[in-house]
Each structure stands twice: as C-alpha cells, then as structure tokens.
Write a protein that binds this DNA or RNA. Structure first.
Length: 418
RNA sequence: GUGGGUGUAGCUCAGGUGGUAGAGCACUUGGUUGUGGCCCAAGUGGCCGUGGGUUCAAGUCCCAUCACUCACCCCA
C-alpha cells in the first residue's frame, strides 16, 4: 500500500467542513476590512526565500524543500507566504498608483521539520499583509483583526503577546549589549545558546531551558534600547490597543525566527496545543520590499496556523456537515429510473437527494436513509406507480404523506424545504 | 537532527512465563412476503507495520527498518 508522505496529511470529509467554515469567516472578515485576496505560486526560486527569510535561519538552513528542476534551476516549495507576496507586489509594480495595498491569502506551506502535535510538513496558513503604511495603526489593525477572528471562532484561552524588535538603527546597539551580556554568562547557558550567541543572539532570549531563562533574567531588554522613533511607534501600538479594548501582554522575550522583522512583532498564543503555542504570529517588516529590489516601502503582516486554529477553535464539525434532504427508496427497476431523474432535477434546485443503485430491499434502503440522516425518504415501487402516488416519509416524525407522481419535483419542493 | 511511547479486523482495543488470534463498535443477511433507529441470531472481515534472527514452534523473545505520536529544537 502506498502511504502518504511523512508529516503530510489528508483532510477528510468530517473534518474539512470546519476548515471550510473557518475559511469563510476569515475571508468575510478580511473583505470587510478592505483586504483583497492574492493567490501566489506554491514554488519560487530558492533565492527569494534565502534572501528574505535569512540565510542563517533554521528555515532556510535545514527546513526547506529545495531541489533542482529538470533544467537544473533551484526551486523551493514555499515555507511561508510573505516573501512571495512581496515579490509579487514588486514585480507588478503595485506600488505605482497607490502604494497602500492590503492582501490576504490562504494556502499550504512546506517545512521539513520533525512532525509533532500542531506541526506538519505541509501545513496551512492564512496570511494578511498591509503594504505602504508606516503608521503603527496598521500593526494595530492586524492585531485587532486577529482578536476578532479568534473570538468569532470561539477560541477560548488565547493571549496576544507583543514586542518591538527595533530598527536597523537601534537593533545593532541592542544586539551588541545583548552579546556582551551573554558572553558574561556563557557558563550558565546551554550549548545551543552558546552556539547562538554570535549568529543570532536574539534567539537566546526565548530559549526554553530553565537555566537559560534564569541566566537571561536580567539581560538587557530591547524595549529599553529602542531609538526615539521606534519607542514612539511602540507606544502608539500599546495605546491604541488599549483604547480598542484589545487585551495584550508585552513579552520582551518574543523574538521572530525570520530575519526580516522590524519594530512591532506579535504572536497569538494558546495553552492547549502543547509545545506549539503560537497560533498566529507576525509583525512589521519595513526593510523587506527594498531588500528584494523594490522601493523603500513599509509593510506589516501576520500568518495564522490554520491547522492549529482548527484544533483550538471551539467548533464541532457535526454542526457543519450537510445531510441529504431526501433519500429516494426505489423498489424496482422502473422506479429506479424515475428516481434517478428526480434526483438530478432536485440537485439542480439545491435539494440534496441520494438513492441506492444496488436494488436493495426496502428495509435496507430505509436503514441507509436513517444512517445518512436524510430528513425525508421518498418511497416508490410498483404499487405507487400504479396509483400514480409516491410516499413521502418524514424521518423524524415518521409521518407519511402521498405525493402525485405527476410533476413530482415541483410538488415536493414546498414539502421538503425548511 | 536527538530522545521517549506506540504499531493486532474499517474503528477502539484485549491477547502473564513462546504452542498458530479475540472482544466491542461498524458492516451484510435473517427474525419482520414493502418501512430506519431498540432487541435477538448468524455471517463477512487479520501475511498481528515490514525485513531478518533465535526456536521443533514467534503476535509474544532479539536485531534492524518504516510509520504514528509526544517532547527537545523550531515556528504558524
């Protein structure tokens, strides 16, 4: 038997209905806030991700699905969406008329990590990005949007964490101070952190090893090192979240794994997913568009982990499964032929009908109707055809009425509709 | 990449110290000559994850491998 690829999964009927619902709620909310859908390719030139995400990140270093195509060009299955959206924004010169653009996209991403709860090698993200707005209010809008989406989906127990990572002006100063602090405590840190010290000192801040956390307790805080412009930006973010009534916690350990983030960064965390606590994450990336060859353009955005959101959402898939409106039990061949025509006609009118094609007994067909949770069953056999009447049974109340075969579809519509 | 746990029927799981595989649910049929859910009965369904080894004999013991899962790591 051929099995699916490790870390990949099928989303089957019975689970997919909740996904469809979440997707429709998200689309509705984004559209209400003026976001336009953008669909981007599932593969890009490797270079795009390497440059945007950062050569030294774990994603680029060891998680990407990268391979040469038949011509030998290096291509990569997208590990995230932001890079592609930026590429598209630049390539189509979407900044030319009005640089302010708001996009959302939904689709699969690929990272070759060790699978575990809430972590798959093909996983789904909902992304939203705002280009061309330097104001901190764009960051606030995104967080507000997330809070609204999550409460509409009944995800209890989630918390918004925010932080600022500074800008190219203040971050180097902070990094230097941090590296110096780390160097003074290397004997107390785990080997991973010692290794991270020079390559990516920010990562040491969110190490989960207790000893490291303790050693980093008094580490310099980025928030104390922000330049005046970044500090003001962060102040506005906090103040407007407050006035919008969006609860949040400032988490100075919140660090992003992708190099392109600047200033505001945020994460929506949950306790119910084990170690994979981030259901959504994002932040500002003012330098990325320029770095990828576009104009100097501010931007901010987020990604939601769809798989994780579906697990956290307080939704019962049963509530979204559509049951047949009608099961047609035909008892002989001629009735079956008639039933099939009715079934087709009903389908075009939005009434879901189903029937049996195996010539089963009435008892067996009734059983199937019950198992399928059909609201009504239509019974037609030789007796009914002779009388020119079919029997319509309400499966819940067990009441039965007769319906003339003549123009049956039109006659049944008012009887079946809610 | 590193650890721990688990792989037996479609599903959930039993199968001390080795002796050729079971239950519940589901499914099919019948009890009810043409009426579902409850009940009763019968039946279908397994290379016991895969490959090797030990043994007269392996679901059971040993080794390897794959998969699932949880954690580290990383992130959404």
């Amino acid at each position: 038997m051929i099995q699916l690829i490790r870390g990949f999964k099928d989303i089957l009927p019975g689970e997919v209905e909740v996904w469809q619902y979440i997707e429709s709620v998200a689309r509705g909310l984004f559209e209400d806030f003026g976001f336009k859908e953008i669909r981007i390719p599932i593969m890009e030139k490797t270079e795009l991700f390497a440059r945007s995400i950062g050569e030294d990140t774990d994603i680029v270093e060891k998680e990407m699905y990268t391979f040469p195509d038949r011509k030998g060009d290096l291509i990569t299955l997208r590990p995230e969406a932001t890079a592609s959206i930026c590429r598209s924004y630049i390539q189509h010169k979407m900044y030319a008329d009005d640089p302010v653009k708001k996009f959302y996209t939904i689709g699969p991403m690929f990272r070759r990590e060790r699978p575990q709860k809430g972590r798959y090698r093909q996983f789904y993200q909902i992304n939203a990005e705002i280009f061309g707005v330097a104001s901190p209010l764009a960051d606030v809008e995104l967080i507000f949007l997330l809070k609204n989406l999550f409460s509409r989906l009944s995800t209890g127990d989630v918390e918004a964490h925010i932080n600022s990572l500074g800008c190219p002006e203040c971050r180097p100063v902070f990094k230097a101070a941090l590296t110096e602090y780390i160097s003074s405590r290397t004997d107390a840190l785990c080997s991973d952190c010692v290794r991270r010290k020079d390559r990516n000192p920010l990562r040491v801040l969110d190490c989960k090893v207790p000893a490291c956390r303790e050693a980093m307790e008094d580490a310099p805080s980025i928030i104390d090192h922000l330049c005046p412009a970044c500090a003001q930006h962060f102040d506005v973010v906090r103040a407007s979240l407050d006035s919008l009534g969006v609860p949040f916690v400032v988490n100075k350990r919140l660090v992003r794994g992708l190099d392109y983030y600047t200033r505001t960064t945020f994460e929506i965390q949950t306790r119910s997913l084990g170690a994979q606590s981030a259901v959504a994450g994002g932040g500002r990336y003012d330098g990325l568009v320029k770095m990828l060859g576009g104009p100097d353009m501010p931007a901010t955005g987020f990604a939601i982990g769809f798989d994780r959101l579906a697990e956290v959402a307080g939704l019962d898939n049963q509530d979204f499964i559509r049951k047949p409106d009608l099961y047609i039990a035909a008892l002989d061949e001629e009735s079956g032929a008639m039933a099939f025509e009715w079934l087709c006609a009903l389908g075009t009118q939005g009434i879901q009908a189903t029937m049996d094609f195996e010539g089963r007994s009435l008892k067996s067909q009734m059983k199937r109707a019950g198992r399928n949770e059909a609201r009504f069953t239509l019974i037609v056999g030789e007796d009914e055809r002779k009388k020119g009447l079919a029997i319509l049974r309400n499966m819940k109340t067990r009441e039965q009425v007769t319906v003339p075969l003549d123009n049956l579809v039109e006659r049944m519509k008012p009887l079946i509709q809610y």
